[in-house]
Write a protein that binds this DNA or RNA. Structure first.
Lengths: 193, 193
DNA sequence: GTCTATATAAAGATAGAC
DNA sequence: GTCTATCTTTATATAGAC
């Protein structure tokens, strides 16, 4: 277990993570983050001397590793069938801030250092897409499903679950999970009669 | 046919549309738009006195109406079966700049006037989601498909097609359309053996 | 480790000449 | 209708006191 360098550095990282993931790199200011962390914005530079761009890279990387762990935990703790595993993944994804790959690719990453952008891109792929593709692959080996491009299907599952983050807030979180469950059933069985 | 107020106003609107849709409200500057339109940024305010926010509202509204028309045209010109109609919709969507609903909802719209934001939100629903839901509904009435929440399925189809805008550029546009076609088949028949 | 004060640069916007 | 010049505000960032 890694000890956080300091409590208030940690508050800064959490505030930054939540804001950057929700609104994107350009839409969030250092002052927004400082305010959410409860400190003066000048103090941010004590904790992260590299400034806004470094903060984004650190926090996005961290967020993606957290996803990697969250996804894997969800999958291993789920019942050993495709529907349960995908539902566990969806429940995890909906418990986190929206992870908007379109924005990440087209807006956030072009604003930062290219090398860092590449690393984040690769990590996003490994941490979030691959675990879903692996679940599908396992089901394929068991003979319960079959498809020539499981990566494509994994991407579609991911996109459609994340898309639920854009639906106007239903009564409770439960409802979004219910919608996710409906979608998983569609991916498995289709909507054809 | 509505005449454009002026050629250069139209160039401004097109530049703004393309940039805003790709990178979002906050990530695009008035200077970016002016440069893409080939004029000085001060001249933007001659064409759109309301400034950046008004420009975003006008251009986003216009973009959504264009989607409404593009979707309907795609559907009526397609063969009269679900797969063809959804493929036509996907082909249209992939021919346009990415329409990122997560970013629109969580980042762009909160930056502008609330009333305008509501209208854009409703329009997005009517222009893009409803046409897909209608196609599904028609297929349902014909008895070829069946699902208790076609709006949810329509949203998933939309999200997963749009998600293809985040995949690293394949060889040609065709490949994305091919991926879209694979996904449509999955939505209809599922991946279960 | 946090603040005040300040520097620097960029963005949105306006005035007015041409 | 477009430009130059300018204004104002905001954002990122630094210096230095406490």
């Amino acid at each position: 277990m890694v000890e956080p360098k300091s409590q208030s550095r940690e508050r800064v990282l959490q505030a930054a993570e939540s804001l950057f993931m929700k609104r994107g790199y350009e839409a969030v200011t250092v002052k927004d983050i400082a305010k959410a962390a409860g400190i003066h914005h000048a103090s941010i530079y004590h904790h992260i001397p590299g400034g806004k761009a470094d903060l984004f890279v650190e926090v996005t990387t961290r967020h993606l590793y957290q996803h990697q762990k969250g996804m894997r935990d969800a999958i291993v703790n789920a019942e050993d069938d495709l529907h349960s595993q995908l539902l566990a993944v969806a429940t995890w994804l909906l418990s986190q801030p929206p992870l908007d790959f379109i924005r990440l690719t087209n807006s956030d990453l072009p604003s930062i250092d290219e090398k860092a952008a590449d690393e984040i891109n690769n990590l996003a792929y490994e941490a979030v897409l691959v675990p879903i593709a692996d679940v599908l692959e396992q089901a394929c080996l068991k003979g319960v499903v079959d498809h020539p491009n499981l990566g494509n299907v994994a991407g579609a599952i991911l996109s459609s679950i994340q898309g639920l983050h854009a639906v106007p807030e239903p009564d409770v979180l439960n409802t979004r999970i219910y919608m996710a469950e409906q979608l998983i059933a569609v991916f498995i069985r289709g909507i054809a009669k």
